[in-house]
């Protein structure tokens, strides 16, 4: 991935900053600049998500692409953020502990590396909340 392509997503990847429509109250992550419900009547503003949510579904990836492979099998999940939107991310936990409905919160972590000399991708993962 080119540096520019990664760079411009940093606010969203590092801080979970999405958007909210002040007209209907819906939250969007990743950010939308156009509300699908209110369309041109929508008023879009930035919104920093609290980072807590619930696991909707998950899998344990056993056969991973090279750039993600170093930590071994990992838990991939769809998380429903408390504000409403759903997102795909990794859960840092023992794969045996992953389950639907588990409460999680966001953390800042390394995601992948573009080989030995490429850029290191950082972003949001989630950890279980006791």
């Amino acid at each position: 991935m080119s540096v520019a392509r990664f760079w411009r997503k940093i606010p969203q990847r590092y801080n979970l900053i999405g958007t909210r429509c002040e007209t209907c109250g819906n939250h969007f992550f990743p950010p939308r600049t156009f509300c699908p419900d209110c369309r041109r009547a929508g008023k879009i503003v930035d919104h920093k998500f609290a980072g807590s949510g619930t696991v909707v579904t998950y899998t344990v990836i056993q056969t991973a692409p090279d750039q993600f492979a170093s930590p071994g099998p990992y838990v991939l999940a769809i998380i429903k953020l408390d504000e409403g939107p759903q997102m795909t991310s990794q859960i840092i936990c023992d794969p045996k502990e992953a389950k639907i409905g588990m409460r999680v919160k966001s953390v800042f972590r390394k995601i992948a590396t573009d080989g030995e000399s490429g850029i290191i991708h950082y972003g949001t993962k989630f950890v279980p909340v006791e």
Binding site: I61, L76, T88, I100
Partner: peptide, 20 residues
């Protein structure tokens, strides 16, 4: 940018459909 970037493989996405 929002699936592949975080480690979603194609089998992984369909696996999440299967889990659900």
């Amino acid at each position: 940018e929002w699936e592949g970037f975080v480690g979603a493989t194609f089998p992984g996405l369909y696996a999440m459909i299967a889990t659900d």
